[in-house]
Amino acid sequence: MATNSDSNVNKAVNVSELIAKNKKKKSINNYMEKLVPTILFLLASITVLTTIGILYTLISEAVHFFMEVPILDFFTGTELKPLSQNPEFGILPLLNGTIISSLIAILVAGPIGLMSAIFLSEYASDKVRRIIKPLLEILAGIPTIVYGFFAFTFVTPLIRTFWPQLEATNILSPGLVMGIMIIPMIASLSEDAMTSVPNGIREGSLAMGTTKLETTVKVVIPAAFSGIIASFVLAISRAIGETMIVTIASGSSKNFSFDITESMQTMTAFIVEVSGGEAPAGSTLHYSLYAVALTLFVFTMIMNLLAKYVSRKFREEY
């Protein structure tokens, strides 16, 4: 403003012209001030549209499916023969495959992830932590297709050398590899929960003469329990939704079986198989895709909400 008035005096610029110019600039500015929030709001609502889009596609197409296949048959059927003359659509084989692979994964990742979290949060020095954490992040950043390749071409042959009954495609090795994939998730979320336990509590326990192990097991873990459980639930949810590892390494057998040496199909792998096979639009097979996806969506959503509920409801407040 100061330079403006100076130049007005020196060069005798037409003042009214300047004022008009300034006003015009202001009105543009005012206009922008009103327009920008609206545009930004529209951009932010795209995420809401995405959710609506997902729900709408899944539900509207699944409804077609349930008009042809009764809901009860779908959820209680142990036979899945989508391509046979008398096609049967029971989701239990897929649920079975999903649950077994996730269970194997959490059996691997649960203990190892939690123990890593204990080490990082309670035992490791700052220096060690600063080296190990980025390395674990690399493990978390590797694309799942790479894990799938690893399970199929390395882990399965490796296990087969001392357990020959294992089939070339089986649910065991993708389960194990999926477990490795979710270790970093459990480790870092549990570590967050444990580091947020105030030091005073730790010191109080140590001052009573306990060892570090006793403090960790009897004081820190109970205090961080809700966060640890939440990390487990989130990791299971991640395993349920994981696609490429099981698609590659577990084959496409739709048998309802509990033998982990056999090939089993998960919900996600079924979606890949059917959509890749170009099921004709409008066929029951095509609609079954969405019914399975809706089930998968509901499953993971319940897990995610459960994790949130657990960490809120049972959190110890300090």
Partner: peptide, 22 residues
Amino acid sequence: IETNIANLAGVPSIVYGLLGLT
């Protein structure tokens, strides 16, 4: 909106594939 974004982050990637397909 924020809850919605948090939930979207937990949706399996294959479900996005079906959204894209449709």
